[in-house]
Design a protein around this nucleic acid. Structure first.
Lengths: 140, 140
DNA sequence: CAGGTCATCACCCGAACGGGTGATTGCGCG
DNA sequence: CGCGCAATCACCCGTTCGGGTGATGACCTG
């Protein structure tokens, strides 16, 4: 959110600068009798740089915050909140007993949650679950 | 390799197109008596688009092949090539038996390699090994 | 209220995993 | 050549994991 806000501001500023450059070039044409070709080359170079810069910002903002733990896949697979918590700790390399301790529940409860996770992810063990969950961007 | 090759070709093509556009605009100026401002705006728009496009391609090619499986950490930890192969398959969620089948060795061999990996990574089970290997950029 | 979902816990059993020891082969290095 | 190291395989033993079934209570929804 913050980033796209900043992006918009910066882009607007760049456009304003571009307008200023255009005015300046117009002034050069009328007063200093510049060659048209040189002016065009200058404009081309400036706006190419502007485009590269904005392109970088666009892609960066498109790539960096890309893993909001996509709720789409979570709900599409019917993974509950508790199961997602177990999945998170699972990916950290904790054993079932450690997960149980972190969530203040019994070891059997963790096993049940994991069984449901395996069914929903269509896997048969924890390492496959980690692999698939990462592929589906369910975990960071 | 292939991608950067293609990138270079496409960039050169874009430059050639830009030159053609400049020629075309020059023609318009002389023959059709276009307004200079309109021409500049056209050039600006075109080169902004060109910049965004090349910027996208540059960042894409800069981001994609960013994880070379850093040999530094591998050698620093004393992980042999065979152990690295086992680690790779381990992270894919395969069981020990499946890893053994992929590498055409015995199940006991895989267990030995994994024991060595656990010692070198200072972990105690496979999920922790995956977690730490990913943190150390040993696996994709 | 009846039905469904979720979270919780229990038990059992087979499979997989982890750790340890020991052994053999091949390869490079001093 | 002798040494170390990587790779291979075997055996034993205890722990963990995975699957199945069953059960309870809380909550929501029609």
């Amino acid at each position: 959110m913050k980033q796209s806000r900043g992006l918009i501001w910066l882009y607007g500023l760049a456009l304003a600068l571009g307008a200023l450059v255009l005015q300046w070039l117009d002034y050069l044409y009328t007063v200093r009798r510049f060659s048209t070709e040189i002016g065009i080359v200058i404009v081309a170079a400036l706006f190419t740089a502007l485009g590269i810069w904005t392109g970088n910002r666009l892609t960066r903002s498109r790539i960096a915050p890309d893993f909001e733990k996509n709720t789409q896949a979570l709900s599409a697979l019917g993974i509950s909140e508790r199961e997602d918590q177990v999945l998170e700790l699972l990916a950290k390399g904790l054993t079932n007993q450690q997960i149980a301790d972190h969530l203040f529940v019994s070891l059997n409860t963790i096993k049940t949650h994991l069984s449901h996770l395996y069914q929903k992810l269509e896997v048969s063990n924890r390492t496959q679950a980690i692999h698939k969950a990462r592929a589906l961007r369910l975990i960071a």
